[in-house]
Design a protein around this nucleic acid. Sequence first.
DNA 1: GAGCACTGC
Length: 741
Amino acid sequence: MCAKTLRSVHEHRKPASLRGRSFKRPTTGRFDINGDERKFKKKHSKANGIVSPMPNGKPTTSKKVNGMVNGVNGHAVVHMEDEADTSSGRGVATSSKYAAIQEQRANLPIARGETHSTIPAISIHDPSFATIGKEALLNEFREHDVTVLLGETGSGKTTQVPQYLLESGLAGEGMIAVTQPRRVAATSLAARVAAEQNGRVGSVVGYSVRFDERSSTDTRIKYLTDGMIFRELLSDPLLSKYSVVIVDEAHERSLRTDLLIANLKTIQQKRNDASQGKGKGKEKEKERLKIIIMSATLDAEKFAKFFPGSKIIYVQGRQHPVTIYHSAQGQLDYVDSAMRTFFQIHVDQPPGDVLIFLPGQEDIESLDNSIRLYANQLPPNQQEVLICTMYASQAPGQNAKVFNATPPNTRKCILATNIAETSITIPGVKYVIDTGKCKEKRYLAKNTGGGFDTLMTRDITKSSAMQRAGRAGREGPGFCFRLYTEESFKSMALSAEPEIMRSISALKTLFLIGGLDQSGEITQLGREMAAFPLEPVYSRAVLASKEYGCTNEVLTIIAVLSASSKVFVDSSEQRDAVAEARKKFKHGSGDHLTVLNVVRAYKDVALSENKSGRREWCRKHFLNERALLEANDIREQLQQTCERLGIDWKVSCGDGDEPVIQSFGQGLAMNTAFLQPDGTYKQTMGQSTVKIHPSSTLCDKKAPTIVYDEVVYTNQIYARGVSIISKSFLAGLGALKVRQA
DNA sequence: GAGCACTGC
């Protein structure tokens, strides 16, 4: 019976080729899953370090990866980077605490001279590294305008290098900027470094992220998000208040980091040219700009090539050894394989939590069910299994459960998406199971039959696989089980294709909505659009709302759509209750005004209820309060932008829906479609046929003409965030269609 | 009638 139930769990999974696979229920007390297909090839059983791929494809073991074993003399491991303790930095440390912090600083690999230097364009894996210490590192910074600093997690480079530059006087009179791709990293790093400087955040060490800035005239080291430094570029194109700009996490190749690096090159040339012409000595130094690119070990030479004359320096990390196993044969059904591997660990291996990487929610739920089913049949003397799931659209409270301490005699099993790869560090993990899969959003070009975003399961990259394995070695020696062969690993791409290479399809949209003219120059409308911290299509909708007299409503809706997390929370267990709760907010015109109804209802509740009452109301209605609060912040920021541009944001259309939707139509002109006899929709500007996503309030409503926020191709091509738009509005787009042609 | 990785202003 159980086998049947399990099969049915898997039956609905894709791909279809996997259907019908069954799992034999164990007949003995011992859960023997060590069948033929489940033999792992163990690599370097006595290895002292991660098996790292060489550029030439030969795996090697790197012994020095292991900082603890090399002797940190019993000091607790201090993770100096993304997990820096935020709370410790809020106040001024006591003198004994300060002394302890300084001792920790001195013991970091970067301070102890575990750095290597090599000449540019030579592989960083070259064995002929010279070991240099802090002073030598500073000399390299002094002698080179651009330094590429490679370092593994835990090396302390992000916290220490800015302080070295400050303490040595190398930064001169100017400030040191350290850019980060994520907000939490910027704020927690500033807290940590402020504590190391025995000061408060906002004095010598500060940060700047959206909605939150802590800096003053005293501030010399500033951690900021790459988005914020772009805002600063608008008012100070040469970044003149900074003498050093450090770009951290450059290997992630985010759109903004890439653009920032490109801009920095130009800025440096301009500033260094200017400094040649005038002044001497100190004055000259003040003008010059130093750039430090910090990156994980892959991709270094690309950055070095981009900056001729730059220097590559390598810093050891502090990571415990992780033994990596590859599956002997390829696995067709990675969910099934993950389950077998989990129980193999659970039965045979010493205590320690297990982290399983899966591509998405659907697989997580499926594996959750399977493990639950079989965990109940384990003999009573076995440890309990506690399953935690973690993915972006899950309620925040549910996600937070992974941080709870594991109860006694229990093994925690965490089923997570990429969310656990970089953003979040989960304590207690000793074993990692890596399915080798992830989901990636990718723009499918028109000439290949697309013209829209796709979200597909695909193989991860080598650098992703390394990152996942590393998650097992944060607190002690760990193990990583890869559900793919070593050959598959070798054939993986080195690292993700830079975002800039797979996302930009925006030029035509900008032209269509009037942000650019025919020669590609920015228009007056485009300039106003750029003032808003929004996607251009939504900036356009705000500007249109001025004409339609509904700025108030449009700002509210856009603020919610722009929040980082979704307002509607998923719960597969309470599906009916979710549907029932959604009904209350439903607006006949579609999803945009439904969002407005949610915000209005929340505001009503906020008038009569206290904090816990509001929270309870959100929980009951399956709404994410954090998203609503963030939307409120965004709304206030948008109001300020409106005021700067002389737009009256108080103008309201009351209960009217038509003006609101038409405002969106101006921005989302590309995303309009009309009903065809077979019930699908044909795009007005594009050849594709789309369906309304089942999560939409308009699903199955057969609205004649629609406007939507986005198209995503999963199993079918779906339009999401859909509202009914008038036929006459669509007819009015005829002129745009001509422009498009 | 299906299910959605991660960021940023």
